[in-house]
Amino acid sequence: TEYKLVVVGAGGVGKSALTIQLIQNHFVDEYDPTIEDSYRKQVVIDGETCLLDILDTAGQEEYSAMRDQYMRTGEGFLCVFAINNTKSFEDIHQYREQIKRVKDSDDVPMVLVGNKCDLAARTVESRQAQDLARSYGIPYIETSAKTRQGVEDAFYTLVREIRQH
């Protein structure tokens, strides 16, 4: 089974770092803004072998026109913010609204991801993020692309959301 996953969120929150940590098991430290990259990885989730087709997208506003296209083809979405960047957390709402509009559905598989949880300088409390996820009816997972904490959990949870859909 193949799953088309799309990673969305503001610029600099760590979308590529999360994806590369999942696929290649290493942490990319330097920031190089993405336009669009796709990665494929075969994994076993709950005993089922599946192929993850992951689209890593641009957070930069100037590429926002490309969003409709990949939102149409994606089956599930990782909505990523950084726990030390309140603005990126506030941006999640717009991504969710755009996904709902493009998919013409209120019920699209999504996982809210709070990345950079290895950093002490948190400005978005776990509780705020949990409340937001609960209001959307989606899971919330904290990750660190640096330490790998929660990385597999985030992507695998999204696959489970798609399966249950």
Rank of each mutant, 00 (worst) to 15 (best):
T1C: 11
T1G: 08
E2G: 03
Y3Q: 04
Y3K: 08
Y3V: 11
Y3E: 07
K4R: 12
K4V: 06
K4C: 08
K4M: 12
K4E: 14
L5M: 07
L5Q: 01
L5I: 10
V6E: 04
V6L: 06
V7G: 03
V7T: 09
V7Y: 01
V8P: 01
G9C: 02
G9V: 01
G9T: 03
A10V: 11
A10R: 13
G11N: 14
G11S: 14
G11L: 14
G12Y: 05
G12I: 15
G12K: 12
V13L: 09
G14Y: 00
G14P: 01
G14W: 04
K15R: 01
K15L: 02
K15A: 03
S16D: 01
S16K: 03
S16H: 00
A17P: 04
A17H: 02
L18D: 01
T19L: 05
I20Y: 10
I20R: 04
Q21N: 15
L22M: 14
Q24Y: 02
Q24N: 11
Q24P: 03
N25W: 09
H26L: 14
H26N: 14
F27W: 12
F27A: 04
F27Y: 12
D29C: 10
E30L: 08
Y31M: 08
Y31P: 02
Y31E: 02
Y31C: 02
Y31N: 04
D32G: 06
D32I: 04
D32H: 09
P33G: 03
P33H: 05
P33S: 07
P33M: 06
T34L: 03
T34Y: 04
T34E: 01
I35C: 08
I35Q: 02
I35P: 03
E36I: 04
D37Y: 02
S38F: 05
S38C: 07
S38H: 00
Y39T: 02
Y39E: 02
R40H: 07
K41Q: 10
K41P: 13
K41E: 05
Q42A: 12
V43C: 10
V43A: 15
V43S: 12
V43E: 06
V44N: 11
V44L: 12
I45N: 09
I45W: 13
D46S: 07
D46L: 11
G47I: 09
G47D: 07
G47M: 10
G47T: 10
E48I: 10
E48C: 13
E48N: 06
E48Q: 11
T49L: 10
T49E: 07
T49D: 13
C50D: 08
L51M: 14
L51P: 08
L52Y: 11
L52A: 05
L52S: 02
L52T: 09
D53M: 04
D53P: 03
I54N: 01
I54V: 07
I54Q: 01
I54P: 02
I54G: 05
L55Y: 04
L55D: 14
L55W: 14
L55M: 11
D56N: 01
D56F: 00
D56Q: 00
T57F: 01
A58H: 01
A58R: 11
A58E: 09
G59F: 03
Q60F: 13
Q60T: 14
E61S: 12
E61H: 13
E61Y: 15
E62C: 11
E62A: 04
E62I: 00
Y63M: 10
Y63V: 09
Y63W: 14
Y63K: 06
S64A: 10
S64P: 12
S64C: 14
A65N: 01
A65T: 03
A65G: 13
A65Q: 02
M66E: 08
R67K: 11
R67C: 08
R67I: 15
Q69H: 07
Q69V: 02
Q69Y: 09
M71K: 07
M71L: 14
M71Y: 07
M71C: 03
R72F: 01
R72L: 04
R72G: 07
R72V: 03
R72Q: 06
T73L: 13
T73K: 10
G74L: 05
G74C: 03
E75M: 14
E75N: 02
E75W: 05
G76L: 13
G76E: 02
C79M: 15
C79E: 00
V80Q: 01
F81L: 13
F81A: 05
F81S: 05
A82F: 03
I83Q: 14
N84L: 07
N84S: 13
N84E: 15
N84T: 14
N85I: 01
N85C: 11
T86Q: 15
T86V: 11
K87R: 06
K87F: 10
K87C: 04
K87G: 04
K87I: 07
K87D: 11
S88Q: 08
S88P: 06
S88L: 01
F89P: 01
F89H: 10
F89N: 05
E90W: 08
E90K: 12
E90F: 10
E90H: 11
D91G: 14
I92M: 03
I92Y: 06
I92K: 04
H93C: 12
Q94T: 11
Q94R: 15
Q94I: 09
Q94C: 14
Q94D: 05
R96T: 07
E97T: 15
Q98T: 15
I99T: 07
I99N: 03
I99D: 00
K100Q: 08
K100C: 15
K100E: 07
R101F: 06
R101L: 04
R101E: 02
V102P: 03
V102T: 11
K103W: 09
K103L: 14
K103A: 10
K103H: 11
D104W: 07
D104I: 06
D104S: 15
D106I: 12
D106L: 15
D106N: 13
D107P: 10
D107Q: 06
V108H: 07
M110E: 00
M110T: 00
V111C: 04
V111H: 00
V111A: 05
V111M: 03
V111W: 00
L112N: 00
L112M: 14
L112K: 02
V113I: 08
V113G: 01
G114H: 00
G114L: 05
G114S: 09
G114N: 08
G114E: 03
N115H: 13
N115S: 12
K116S: 15
K116E: 00
C117R: 06
C117G: 11
C117S: 13
C117V: 09
D118S: 02
D118E: 12
L119E: 13
L119G: 15
A121G: 11
A121I: 15
A121N: 10
A121V: 11
R122T: 14
T123M: 14
T123S: 12
V124L: 09
V124G: 05
E125D: 11
E125L: 08
S126K: 10
R127P: 12
R127L: 08
R127A: 15
Q128V: 13
Q128C: 11
Q128L: 12
Q128P: 04
A129Q: 04
A129V: 07
A129N: 06
Q130W: 08
D131E: 15
D131T: 03
L132I: 12
L132S: 05
L132V: 09
A133E: 04
R134C: 15
R134V: 10
R134A: 13
R134W: 07
S135H: 10
S135Y: 11
G137R: 05
G137S: 08
G137A: 06
G137I: 03
G137K: 04
I138K: 07
I138L: 09
I138C: 09
P139I: 07
Y140F: 07
Y140C: 06
I141Y: 07
E142S: 03
E142C: 05
E142L: 03
T143R: 00
T143M: 10
T143V: 15
T143A: 09
S144N: 12
S144Y: 05
A145I: 00
A145Y: 00
A145Q: 03
A145S: 14
K146P: 12
K146L: 14
K146E: 12
T147Y: 07
T147S: 09
T147F: 08
R148T: 12
R148E: 09
Q149C: 13
Q149A: 11
Q149T: 07
G150H: 12
G150I: 10
V151L: 14
V151M: 07
V151G: 10
V151Q: 07
E152G: 08
E152P: 12
E152K: 07
E152I: 15
D153P: 03
D153C: 10
D153L: 07
A154H: 02
A154S: 08
A154R: 00
A154M: 11
F155P: 01
F155I: 12
Y156W: 11
Y156A: 14
T157P: 04
L158M: 07
L158H: 00
L158R: 00
L158Y: 00
V159N: 01
V159E: 00
R160I: 02
R160E: 06
E161R: 12
I162W: 03
I162P: 00
I162V: 09
I162K: 10
R163K: 12
R163S: 09
R163G: 08
Q164D: 15
Q164L: 04
Q164A: 08
